[in-house]
C-alpha cells in the first residue's frame, strides 16, 4: 500500500488501519460479552459446572425468587448499587462545583498548580487510596475519635467498615473524574451573560441557575456519568471498606465467580450491570449530542 503512486483511495486503505484494533475488540471484547449473555441462560451443576438446560432461572433469582423462597435480597442489592452510585455522584457534584470554580478563578500560575493537585490522585493507584481509608477510619484513628465525641460516644459503632466508609472512599476516588470535565466547562463560561443577568436584578441563585448552569451543564453531565457508572459497578471499594456489610453489584458478581462458583448466575448479574452501563452511555450520548466539542 505504501508504494502506490496513485492518489490514496480512502476506501481501500481504511481496512488495514482499522482492522487490527477492530478485530482485537471483537475477539476479546464483543465475543466474551456475547458468551456472558449466553451463559446467563445456562444452569449451574451441583459442583459449579456450567450445564444445560437453558433456563430463565438466573434472572428469576435475581428478581427475588430463589431456592429458599422469595427474598427481596437481590433486587435490594441492585437498588442499593444505584442509590450508592447516585449518592456518590451527588456528593461529588456538591463538592466538585466549588472546587471547579475555585480553580478556574485562580491566577494562571496557581491554576496549573491546583490542576496538577487534582490530577495526581487520579494517576495514583486506586487500591492504595482506598485501603488508606481503612487506616483513617479505624476505631483508634483521631478521625474516628472526633466522630465518636461528636456523636456522643455511641459504643460499638465504628466508621469502618460501613456504608459511610464506602461512600467516603468512592467520593475520594472519583472526585477528580468530575472536577476535570467540570473545570473545562467552567473555564469556557461567558461571564458577560452572568453580568447581564445580575444587572437585570437577578439574585445570586438566579444568576447561577439561568446564566451559568446552562453553560456548564454539558461538563456537569459528562462528569456525573464519569462518576456514576464506575461507582455502580465498583468492587474494590465496597470490598475493602464495607467489610462484607455494604454489598454492591460488583461484589455479588465476584462472589458468584469465586466462593459460590455459580457462573451462570454471575453472568446474569453481569448482564444487568451491562444494561445499566448501556443506559448511562445512551443518556450521555443523548445529552452530549449538541455541544459535541465540550467532550
Amino acid at each position: 500500500m505504501s508504494q502506490s503512486l496513485t492518489k490514496p483511495n480512502r476506501k481501500t486503505s481504511l481496512w488495514p488501519i482499522l482492522s487490527p484494533a477492530l478485530l482485537w475488540l471483537i475477539v476479546f471484547f464483543v465475543i466474551p460479552l456475547t458468551i456472558i449473555i449466553a451463559i446467563s441462560f445456562f444452569s449451574r451443576g451441583d459442583y459449579g459446572e456450567i450445564q444445560l438446560p437453558l433456563t430463565l432461572e438466573n434472572y428469576k433469582r435475581l428478581m427475588g425468587f430463589g431456592l429458599l423462597g422469595f427474598d427481596s435480597l437481590y433486587p435490594a442489592i441492585l437498588w442499593r448499587s444505584l442509590v450508592l452510585g447516585a449518592l456518590t455522584a451527588t456528593v461529588c457534584v456538591i463538592a466538585g462545583l466549588p472546587l471547579a470554580f475555585f480553580i478556574a478563578r485562580l491566577s494562571p500560575r496557581w491554576k496549573n498548580f491546583a490542576l496538577t493537585l487534582v490530577v495526581i490522585p487520579f494517576w495514583t493507584n486506586l487500591l492504595i487510596r482506598t485501603y488508606a481509608w481503612q487506616i483513617l477510619l479505624s476505631p483508634e484513628s483521631w478521625l474516628s475519635r472526633c466522630a465518636h465525641t461528636l456523636t456522643g460516644g455511641m459504643s460499638g459503632e465504628s466508621l469502618y467498615p460501613s456504608t459511610f466508609a464506602v461512600v467516603v472512599g468512592m467520593v475520594c476516588d472519583f472526585l477528580p473524574f468530575l472536577v476535570l470535565p467540570l473545570y473545562a466547562s467552567v473555564e469556557k463560561i461567558d461571564w458577560s451573560l452572568a453580568e447581564a443577568a445580575s444587572d437585570l436584578g437577578a439574585n445570586k441563585l438566579n444568576v447561577f441557575r439561568h446564566a451559568i448552569l446552562p453553560q456548564i451543564a454539558a461538563g456537569l453531565i459528562a462528569g456525573t456519568i464519569l462518576v456514576l457508572l464506575p461507582a455502580i459497578g465498583q468492587f474494590i471499594i465496597p470490598d475493602l471498606l464495607g467489610g462484607g456489610k455494604t454489598v454492591m453489584l460488583g461484589n455479588i458478581i465476584q462472589q458468584q465467580f469465586s466462593q459460590s462458583r455459580d457462573w451462570p448466575f454471575g453472568s446474569a448479574i453481569c448482564v444487568v450491570a451491562l444494561t445499566f452501563v448501556i443506559m448511562g452511555l445512551w443518556v450521555r450520548a443523548w445529552c452530549g449530542e449538541k455541544p459535541k466539542e465540550l467532550r
Binding site: 451463559i39 460488583g250 458478581i253 453481569c270
Partner: peptide, 22 residues
C-alpha cells in the same frame, strides 16, 4: 464511535469475568 465507550465504562469486574469465561 459510540460502542468504543463501552469498554471504558463497563465495570472492570464484568470485563474480568467475561474474559475469564472466554
Amino acid at each position: 464511535d459510540r460502542t468504543l465507550y463501552l469498554p471504558i465504562f463497563i465495570p472492570d469486574i464484568v470485563m474480568a469475568v467475561a474474559l475469564l469465561l472466554f
